[in-house]
């Protein structure tokens, strides 16, 4: 058992025994060795289910939305990305800060699940792409912190540089090549909405794509409607995506969804100034305000 797993179990036990929170959300081992799905622990004796390993991918903050009407507090483990998701959900007024206890975990970057499945247990596994590009591996907000705080301060002061080379590669294509590329991607989409369900920016009470209003949203699973879905979702999370990459990981059809989201992050930064969603909860959202001197490159 890793040192961090031990610490997690200890603090979860303490929180539950003292009654500080009624539920602790963490990760546990799943069906396969390369899966560590979310665990909802409400009894001290269950804390040994909790685990911290290279596959604790799920962004746990999203589950706070489901528990927002629960009585008492909920404790949740947060990596860097989970903490940004938490901030984002606070900004969306979907959770109550007073009802949540955040337990921060320094994240060294997790391993690629698909590669793990493919290569097997005893092979050298690469980090997940989203973790390779991660700018904020450490939690930005927490009540307890399970790592070395001094190291945290050092790390927190330096933000990793963003890497948009994959976006740039698409931008370099001709319009027709780009269209073909995306059509190939979204032809695979089965409209399972896993990307949406796992996304901390998708916090609507009722998603437009679930609505039955006539003439508003198409539900057919075809190339055109799938792209409509993709573009609409991209615009909906624009300025709100915290780049946790969960949508892409959850996608059973391996659609590179983050290539859309990152494009918007990149453009927002270029057009309206640097903005990292979920970092500063006081900041105004890029599409929630304007500057009279915004660029007008095509108007």
């Amino acid at each position: 058992m890793s040192e961090m797993t031990k610490k997690m179990q200890e603090i979860a036990r303490e929180i539950l025994e003292k009654g500080e929170a009624q539920v602790v959300i963490g990760w546990e081992k799943g069906t396969f060795w390369y899966l560590s799905p979310p665990a909802f622990i409400d009894k001290p004796e269950d804390v040994q289910r909790l685990v911290w390993d290279d596959f604790c991918h799920n962004n746990l903050s999203k589950y706070l939305v489901d528990l927002k009407n629960h009585e008492g507090k909920t404790a949740v483990f947060v990596k860097g990305c989970d903490s940004r998701a938490f901030n984002r959900l606070l900004q969306d007024k979907q959770i109550d800060r007073e009802k949540v206890i955040l337990i921060g975990i320094p994240c060294p970057g997790l391993l690629d699940q698909d590669k793990a499945k493919e290569l097997g247990k005893n092979s050298e596994l690469p980090k997940a792409q989203k973790c390779l590009e991660c700018q904020y591996p450490n939690p930005l907000v927490y009540d307890y912190y399970l790592g070395d705080k001094e190291a945290l301060n050092e790390v927190a002061a330096t933000k990793e540089a963003a890497d948009y080379s994959d976006v740039a590669a698409i931008e370099a294509m001709s319009p027709d090549e780009r269209y073909d590329f995306w059509t190939r991607q979204y032809d695979r989409c089965i409209r399972c909405y896993a990307c949406r369900n796992v996304c901390p920016a998708c916090s609507c009470r009722e998603c437009v794509f679930d609505q039955t209003r006539v003439g508003w949203i198409g539900k057919a699973n075809n190339s055109s409607e799938n792209q409509f879905f993709a573009l609409t979702r991209a615009m909906h999370v624009a300025g709100r995506c915290i780049e946790c990459g969960e949508c892409e990981r959850a996608c059973p059809m391996d659609i590179p969804i983050m290539l859309l989201n990152k494009k918007l992050v990149k453009d927002i930064n270029e057009l309206f100034g640097e903005y990292d969603a979920g970092v500063d909860i006081e900041g105004k959202l890029p599409l929630g305000h304007f500057d009279k001197n915004d660029p007008e490159e095509f108007m």
């Binding site: 969306d92 007024k93 916090s203 609507c204 009722e206």
Partner: peptide
């Protein structure tokens, strides 16, 4: 019924 109160 649909409004999630996000305040956007």
């Amino acid at each position: 019924a649909i409004c999630s109160g996000c305040g956007m």
